[in-house]
Amino acid sequence: MDERRTALLYVVLAMLLLAVLAWQVPVDGRGNALLAAGRAVVAPVVDGVIGTVDLVRRGWTGYVALVGIRRERDELRARLERLETDVALCDEVRRENDRLREMLDLARSGAFERALVARVVADLSSGPRNRMLLVDRGRRDGVTRGWVAVHRGALVGLVVRAGRRSAEVMTLEDPDAAVAVRHREGRYVGVLHGGGRGAAVVARLDYVPRDRPVVVGDTLVTSGLDGVYPPGLVVGRVRALGGNSPLTWTIRVDLAFTGSALEEVLLVPPPPPVERPGDAEDGP
């Protein structure tokens, strides 16, 4: 009896569903309102599932993108470091190029036709009383004792020993160095002695008469009177005036170059010896 009722129920429900299906057959564009109503019932569940999945998918996509961005950032950071290193190297090359061009221009000016550019390979200084540089030019390049080292028009020192491939330059900071100088405009002359006294390396110019118009800041250049250094090279600037003598100044001079910062120097041959009267009188 129960099975019959169930069968009847099935038949009724099946007929009802068939009628519902028949009603939905599209006629002249009529909409499916029944389906829309059914959708409205379960829409929250389906929308919730779709929304959750979409959220997870977007989160995952964002995470993957973030990982990619992080990797890209690391690569860019490494690349930036490499580029910064390259830029620093380029800057150094550019500065070196400027220095060498300046020296080359000086050499081409005719003043130093036989001049050579030498690289400073070592600082041989062993204290304030010994200021030496080692350069990579020697007898093989024609460099001999007496050549003059110049940097950007400023006097650096004198080659005191020449090896086959290198030479030692005694700089003006050495206490044994001495050079005949004059005021750039010729107001006074004197002999400048190298520095080396105490920690402060300051050269000094002795025996300048007090009646000479010496002013702090005056530029001193080589006079060439010593026959060792070519004339016109910048030596330094007057730093201070002093001395105990009532007749002469003792002038402290800041040298125009600083030995620790040198990377290249221009080696210039010594000026030709001055022919003295009588030297050429080898005939009758």
């Binding site: 099935y10 429900l13 099946a14 569903l17 068939l18 519902v20 299906l21 939905q24 499916n32 029944l34 389906l35 059914g38 959708r39 019932v41 379960v42 569940v45 389906v46």
Partner: peptide
């Protein structure tokens, strides 16, 4: 209601 194209089709089939 959730996925069907015709309301009642799956209901009739599943039932």
């Amino acid at each position: 209601a959730a996925f069907g194209k015709w309301f009642g089709c799956h209901a009739l089939v599943d039932m």
